[in-house]
C-alpha cells in the first residue's frame, strides 16, 4: 500500500469513529500533534502542583489539608498516566523533561500566575479544574486510544477537584468580611486567565483545522469556552460573587452569557515566557530535578549491581 493509500484508509477509520492505537499506522503530523499535546498536558499537571503546593503547608484545617494534599497527589498521578500515553510515541519521560527544561515543550500558561491567598485554592479548583474538565470531557472522545482512556480516568478525579474548589470559595463567600474579600479578589485575578485556557479564537488557532479533521479535538476552542462561561457565571452568582467584567450580559436569543473581548496580548506574552511566574515555575522544576540526580544515579547503580550479581549466580 502506498503512503497515500494508507493516509486515505487512516482518515476513513477516523471518520468511522474508530480509535487509533500505538501500533497502527498514522501520519507523521498526527503523531507530532498528539505527542506535543499529550506531553504538554503531562507537564501542565506537574507544573500545576506548584501553585497549590504553595498553600499546602498553610492549609487552614485538617480536612482542607487532606483534600489539598490528595488533589496534588492526583495531579502527580495524572502526570504519570499522561507521560505514559506520550511515551507510546517512542520518546521517554527523561527526554520529555529535557524538552520542558529547554523550553521546547510548553505547559499550560494558567500556572504562570501566582497563588496569593487561600482563596486561590478555591479559585484554582473551581475555575482552572472547571475549565480543564470542559476541555478533557471532549478529549475523552479523541481518536487516539491511549489519550482518550487517560482522559476518562482523569475526568472523574477532576470532577472532585472542581467541587472541592467551589466549596472553598462558597464557604469563604459566606464567611467573614475578610474571607469574602479574598474570595472575590481570587475570582477577579483568575477569571480572565481561565478563559484563556481554551486557547485562541478558532480563526487564530494554528492547530485547530487538522486537530478537528483527525478528531483529536471534536469541538472548537470557542464552543468549549462558551460552555465554561455559561456554567461558571451561574455558579458565581449563586454564591454572591461578581464576575469581573463590566460588559457581562445574558443574551436571551442565543441563551449564552456574553463577555468582553479577551486580552490576547497578555495571553501571548505569558505563552512566550513573560508571565509573573514562568521563570519561577521552570526554575523550581529544574532545581529539584537536578537535586534528585544523585538519587536516580544511586538507584540505577544499585539495580545494575543486582543484575550483575544475579547474572554471576546464574553463570555459576
Amino acid at each position: 500500500m502506498t503512503e497515500e493509500e494508507k493516509a486515505i484508509q487512516f482518515q476513513q477509520r477516523i471518520d468511522a469513529g474508530e480509535k487509533i492505537e500505538p501500533r497502527d499506522w498514522m501520519p507523521d503530523d498526527y503523531k507530532q500533534t498528539l505527542f506535543r499535546q499529550i506531553s504538554q498536558h503531562a507537564h501542565s499537571e506537574i507544573i500545576g502542583m506548584q501553585p497549590e503546593g504553595n498553600w499546602l503547608l498553610r492549609a487552614p484545617s485538617l480536612r482542607a489539608k487532606k483534600i489539598l494534599m490528595a488533589k496534588i497527589q492526583d495531579e502527580a498521578g495524572h502526570g504519570l498516566y499522561l507521560y505514559s500515553a506520550a511515551e507510546t510515541f517512542g520518546i521517554d519521560r527523561t527526554e520529555m523533561i529535557a524538552m520542558l527544561h529547554s523550553g521546547k515543550a510548553k505547559y499550560s500558561s494558567i500556572f504562570n500566575y501566582p497563588a496569593l491567598t487561600w482563596a486561590d485554592m478555591g479559585a484554582i479548583g473551581w475555575l482552572v479544574d472547571g475549565a480543564a474538565i470542559v476541555n478533557q470531557t471532549m478529549l475523552a472522545k479523541c481518536s487516539y486510544g491511549p489519550y482518550a482512556r487517560a482522559m476518562v480516568r482523569i475526568c472523574k478525579e477532576e470532577g472532585f477537584h472542581q467541587r472541592q474548589g467551589y466549596e472553598i470559595i462558597a464557604n469563604m463567600s459566606a464567611g467573614t468580611r475578610e474571607q469574602k474579600e479574598m474570595a472575590q479578589d481570587a475570582l477577579n485575578r483568575w477569571w480572565e486567565p481561565s478563559l484563556m485556557m481554551f486557547g485562541p479564537h478558532d480563526a487564530d488557532s494554528p492547530h485547530t483545522h487538522n486537530s478537528m479533521k483527525w478528531k483529536i479535538k471534536v469541538e472548537s476552542n470557542d464552543t468549549l469556552r462558551q460552555r465554561f462561561i455559561d456554567r461558571t457565571v451561574e455558579q458565581a452568582h449563586h454564591i454572591g460573587l461578581t464576575i469581573p467584567d463590566k460588559n457581562l450580559k445574558y443574551n436571551k436569543e442565543t441563551m449564552h452569557w456574553e463577555t468582553s473581548p479577551i486580552n490576547w496580548d497578555e495571553f501571548w506574552n505569558v505563552v512566550k515566557g513573560n508571565g509573573p511566574c514562568n521563570h519561577q515555575r521552570l526554575n523550581h522544576h529544574k532545581k529539584y530535578h537536578q537535586e534528585g540526580q544523585w538519587v536516580r544515579d544511586c538507584a540505577r547503580a544499585f539495580e545494575e549491581k543486582l543484575k550483575s550479581e544475579s547474572a554471576a549466580i546464574k553463570s555459576n
Binding site: I46, M49, Q50, G53, L56, L57, L62, K65, K66, M69, A70, I72, Q73, A76, G77, G79, L80, Y83, R93, H284, H285, Y288, E291, G292, Q293, V295, R296
Partner: peptide
C-alpha cells in the same frame, strides 16, 4: 508535605504524599 513537587522522581512525590496523608 514539604517534599511536594521536590522529589527525585514523580513516583516518589506520590509515595511521599501518600505517607503524609497517612500521617494526617
Amino acid at each position: 508535605a514539604e517534599w511536594n513537587s521536590c522529589g527525585p522522581y514523580l513516583e516518589e512525590d506520590i509515595a511521599l504524599s501518600n505517607m503524609a496523608l497517612d500521617f494526617f
